[in-house]
Amino acid sequence: MFSSINIFGLKRSIFLPGLFIFALIVASLLIPGLSPYSEDIRGAVHFEESNLSPSFSHYFGTDAAGRDIFTLTVRAALTSLGIGFGVVILAMFIGTPLGLIAGMKGKWIDEIIMRIVDGFLAFPPLVLPLIITSALGPSINNIVIGIAISWFPWYVRIARSQAIVLKNQDYVLASRSFGGSSTHIILKHILPNSLPPIIVQASIDAGYAILVAAGLSFIGLGAHPPQVEWGLMITQARAHFLDQWWTVTFPGLFIFMTVISFNLIGDGLRETLNLNNREE
């Protein structure tokens, strides 16, 4: 369904942040083989080298346990991006079908689904992931579940509003006039056409998910050693950052750049995908 998107037609606004994310994934996969400090990824400590400032042997310096911050920061991208993708995929998988069904069927089905959704949305943004992860116990998987559960309502809403608009499109009416069933119409017509705004939302949310996960890890609800995750790195270094600025700056910078990148990709996708619409 994306064959209509021409890679070379992608806006530069997608290209650069996309390249950053791609490079980050590649680097995080390769770093265990390339870094002389790859042991640190598994939790090795070298107290004799603790709190070294950035240098040619340690690009981002070392932390209080003597671990190479460059290696850890790059590797942490894998965890953090995994969380980001995990959250949006899960939220999309829960939210989109519900939204499409609500929008297509209307009436009491719509009513019930939207009541539930509004119930979820009644919580202040960070409270639900907090409650869910503290109930399920601190771990990365639970963070993903916690954030996804509190975010899927947004996907329900987008999918629903798409379905409501799309179900009256002529091609849907035509399909119905040929005897197309609801399932056929949802799968062939409504879903493919409602995906662009959902994907735009997902790419923006992927960034925020990383941010929220970092926040939860920061307060001890997420990753735990020896896992490497940006939020956790910042927590562990937070007593030190006044004297050893590099300990929190680099993970922080990577969170920042990743979130911004996903946001730019989202914006770029929005423009690119809109090219296919009649309102050029």
């Binding site: 369904m1 209509s4 499109q169 002529d170 091609y171 009416l173 035509a174 399909s175 006039s177 040929f178 005897g179 197309g180 069933s181 056929h184 062939k188 017509h189 493919p192 056409n193 296919n276 619409n277 009649r278």
Partner: peptide, 27 residues
């Protein structure tokens, strides 16, 4: 069978022309 007024709206933008034309048979 039917043909609608608006050829922009009556064909699914995410379906190839082949698939659009074949849709009644597929159904």
């Amino acid at each position: 069978s039917s043909v609608f007024q608006d050829p922009w709206g009556s064909l699914n933008p995410r379906m190839s022309i082949f698939n659009s034309i074949a849709e009644p048979l597929v159904i």
